[in-house]
């Protein structure tokens, strides 16, 4: 596995989400890469994130072809305060409560395969 993927996973496994930060253009980068996609330089540092974000959009999946997922569940795009957008599930949230713009907080969980996974819950 690429070094950057391993670092991202190891940090999650230890209970934190760290993202790459480009020292040249001073922006956070998601998803992890070897090189900054904005300035194409390779001086990427790692920094922990605040874990705060808002729901940019969401969908409630009613029909899923993947047997390990049990509809209905919330599949969302979350804007982190660090300026990156990521796909994630929103959990611990009733389906009639979810809305665009809702503040959420990072939670790291373990699914069946035991890999640590960042998801979000309502603040």
């Amino acid at each position: 596995m690429s070094g950057y993927k391993q670092i991202f996973k190891d940090k999650l496994q230890s209970g934190q989400m760290w993202l790459q930060y480009c020292l040249d253009c001073q922006r956070f980068v998601y998803y992890p890469r070897e090189r900054c996609p904005y300035c194409w330089q390779d001086r990427l540092d790692w920094q922990p994130v605040s874990g705060l974000g808002t729901v940019h959009s969401y969908t409630i999946v009613r029909v899923s072809a993947l047997p390990e997922f049990h509809p209905p569940y919330i599949y969302a795009l979350v804007d982190l305060t660090e300026g990156v957008r990521m796909a994630a599930n929103i959990e611990e949230c009733s389906l009639d409560r979810i809305q665009v713009g809702m503040p959420v907080h990072l939670k790291i969980i373990n699914r069946e395969d035991n890999a640590a996974l960042p998801i979000f819950i309502p603040v």
């Binding site: 999946v61 390990e68 890999a115 996974l117």
Partner: peptide, 8 residues
Amino acid sequence: YELPYGPM
């Protein structure tokens, strides 16, 4: 970074 969340 998406498949773990069950996108359709």
